[in-house]
């Protein structure tokens, strides 16, 4: 009886916190909409119906889930380990540009399955390479990884822009982009749908990471280091290994998300492209409290929010930036919900 009550109380706590944060953010966002002269109810109705109420919206949202899921998998690892990697946008770009640059070279030489695997690995390696410097500086010299990953982000934007404008530019003189992959060299769709298989990759990654953190010895070391660094050191955990591994994995997942978007949606890397998924994935994994299974519905929610926002900025005149505001508010209200939880012990 007691156990059941504790169990249901915990389950309620997992749900109530994020739901509160989301609702509060939507209310606060609604007030902002009202101030800038939009009807919040109408805006939200359109946002949700465009994102989750039409075939096109659902398809696009499911496609958008893939990079969010993959990136979230990496963030779960790194945040659980108590390390901050906020440069996911840059790692995403490096993974994407590597996949987009190499794909045309190998697409006719490898069987299609290995071609995808190789490019996925390249994306992973690309993203991981971009956190090497922050990871080593953090592990060796305790240099703040937040600052360094952020700096690497700006370097990545410029570096990929250079690559796409010069060495990888497939059409000099026109809008710079890498060679466009033919449809048959992009990720195939899940049968009976128009959603490419990146979604399945994302779901698998998030679930794998969830069990990796919960069930494996290494995952336990990550959690221990994240919860109590001093005790972990005392218990003989190699904290430097944890920092470097967690950061490399998170960067790798961000890079894989980049390869996924190139192979699944874009078919090439275009200049100025920077979808900044990390800015959605960070609030997302906090709302999910680093729980892989909670990430999945939230990723769908964030996806249809951003797809709805994109559709709406074409239909009505509420720019896509509103969704960015709403997501930032969710992160802030997530913090508030933690306060309320401590304060009231209600949930």
């Amino acid at each position: 009886m007691n156990l059941i009550r504790i169990g249901s109380k915990q389950a309620a706590g997992v749900v109530i916190g994020p739901v509160f944060a989301i609702l509060a953010a939507l209310v606060a966002g609604g007030i902002i909409l009202l101030i800038i002269g939009f009807n919040p109810l109408k805006t939200y109705y359109e946002l949700f119906s465009l994102g989750a109420g039409t075939y096109l919206g659902i398809t696009e949202s499911l496609k958008r889930m893939a990079p969010l899921l993959i990136m979230s998998a990496g963030l779960i690892i790194v945040f659980k380990a108590g390390v901050w990697n906020i440069g996911g946008n840059g790692q995403f770009l490096i993974g994407a540009v590597l996949a987009a640059g190499i794909a045309p070279l190998i697409m006719d030489k490898l069987p299609i399955f290995f071609y995808f695997v190789v490019l996925g690995l390249l994306g992973f390696i690309g993203g991981a390479s971009w956190v090497c410097i922050p990871a080593i500086l953090k592990a060796k010299y305790e240099i703040n990884e937040i600052i360094v990953t952020m700096m690497m982000d700006f370097i990545a934007v410029n570096f990929t822009s250079y690559l796409v404008r010069y060495p990888l530019n497939a059409q000099p003189g026109l809008f710079p982009q890498t060679a466009v992959l033919p449809i048959e060299k992009r990720l195939p769709n899940i049968s009976l749908t128009e959603v490419h298989i990146g979604l399945i990759v994302g779901l698998v990654m998030v679930v794998l990471v969830h069990y990796f953190i919960k069930r494996t010895a290494l995952g336990y070391e990550f959690r221990f280091a994240g919860e109590n660094k001093k005790a972990a050191i005392y218990a003989g955990i190699n904290i430097k290994k944890v920092i470097v591994l967690a950061m490399l994995l998170s960067g790798g997942f961000a890079g894989l998300a980049g390869a996924n978007d190139v192979l699944g949606i874009k078919g090439s890397f275009q200049a100025e492209w920077n979808p900044q998924y990390a800015f959605s994935a960070i609030p997302l994994v906090f709302l999910a409290r680093f729980n892989g299974f909670a990430v999945i519905p939230l990723a769908y929610f964030f996806s249809f929010l951003s797809i709805g926002g994109e559709f709406m900025s074409r239909a009505a005149n509420v720019p896509v930036f509103f969704v960015q505001v709403a997501e930032a508010l969710m992160l802030i209200f997530f913090g508030v919900s933690e306060y309320l939880k401590k304060r009231s012990k209600l949930f």
């Binding site: 906020i86 800015f279 930036f321 505001v325």
Partner: peptide, 14 residues
Amino acid sequence: LGIGLFAIGITSLL
């Protein structure tokens, strides 16, 4: 991070 993202979003939106 929340404040930072909020500022990027709200300035761009407005």
